[in-house]
Amino acid sequence: MTPFQEFDAELEDWNTLSASQPCSGLLLGNGASMAVWHDFYYDSLFEKAKSVSEKPLSQTELSVFDALGTRNFEHVLSALKTASKVNKALAISSASPRKRYYAIKEALINCTQDVHIPWRLMQADTLRCWQQELARYATVYCSNYDLLTPWAVMQAPKQFNDLFDNPSATFELGNALGKGKATRVLYLHGAMHLVKNQEGKARKLNADEATLLSSFAVNHSISALDDVPLFVSEGSSDDKRKSIRYCDYLSFCHEQLMAHKDALCLFGHSLSEQDQHLINALRQAPLKTLCISIYPRSEAFIRFQKNHYAALFADKKLTLRFYNSKTHPLGSSKHSVPVEV
């Protein structure tokens, strides 16, 4: 590994880099979303749900997370859903699992809508830029669970294939392997517009741009358990790996990343400790080049970031090229929307 002090602070211009090194895939991280809406910068959705102004998690709900040893909402909601089914099968009259299920789901709804950019504030130029930029790639791997990528896809749906294009809007493994000209969009950690239905299948919510955010995880019925939101929001890399393993859609997306060839562009992705499962996938992939965005905060920061990424792939025959995130279309400051107070 190159010592820290040997890295310079130079960053390539994305336009020049992309002209000389085409990338067939794009891996999007939270930095892409933060370039549009700074409130996407938060450490933990779980912590947000504890302090959100409207119906935060109570001590009773928090005890369920503690008992299961996780901060992942999908794990907890799935466990409560199972407990409710078992109670019904055994004629146990306790309604506590069902009540906790809906209370936790409501806290999740409130905190995600609290931090998410409203549709009414999305700029047409930003949506157009995202749609056009994503469509340049054969495959887009999105590790964010917000709605910016789904909203961009909805601007020109024929240009994209999100693998849910069937009458039931469910993921079918047998149909996912077909090739076409449309850009594949794979949500590595799920997303706010995806759910797991009663059979455990991944399904896409049927809503337009203006109602997609308000449709997220809504409790449609008080008499029956609804779909569980499908997004991996919290926990260690091992926790995320478990969630991926138990979902055929997430497993498929992860396997596709592990099989990506040639050159891949990373934008807004720190590849930090909690992303070790993604780092492992990239290390296993038959990649030749990684083009990595770095925000030019300072010369010291640039050198630190270069050192970080170089250390991750030090033993791989992999070319790393670093570019200025501000020169990438998704990193333009013109897309930044002031957060409402």
Rank of each mutant, 00 (worst) to 15 (best):
Y187L: 08
L134Q: 05
P157D: 08
P150E: 01
M122E: 08
N166Y: 02
M122Q: 08
K179I: 14
E209F: 06
L80S: 11
L108N: 10
A210F: 06
A202S: 13
K201S: 13
D125T: 14
Q198C: 09
I104G: 02
T112Y: 10
S84M: 03
G180V: 01
N144D: 03
R98P: 02
L177W: 13
D165A: 15
S78R: 13
T126G: 07
L148N: 07
L173N: 06
R120V: 13
Q198V: 06
V76Q: 01
S143T: 15
H116A: 14
K179H: 14
N72W: 09
S93G: 01
W151L: 12
R184H: 12
A107N: 08
T112W: 07
G178A: 15
K99L: 15
R128D: 15
T149F: 04
P97M: 07
N197S: 00
Y141Q: 00
S215P: 08
V140G: 01
E74W: 03
L80D: 02
D146H: 06
N166Q: 05
S94A: 12
A182F: 06
A89R: 15
N72K: 12
M154F: 08
F164C: 01
M122N: 01
A95W: 06
N175G: 03
T170Y: 05
D165V: 13
A95Q: 13
V153R: 05
D162Y: 03
A207C: 11
D162W: 05
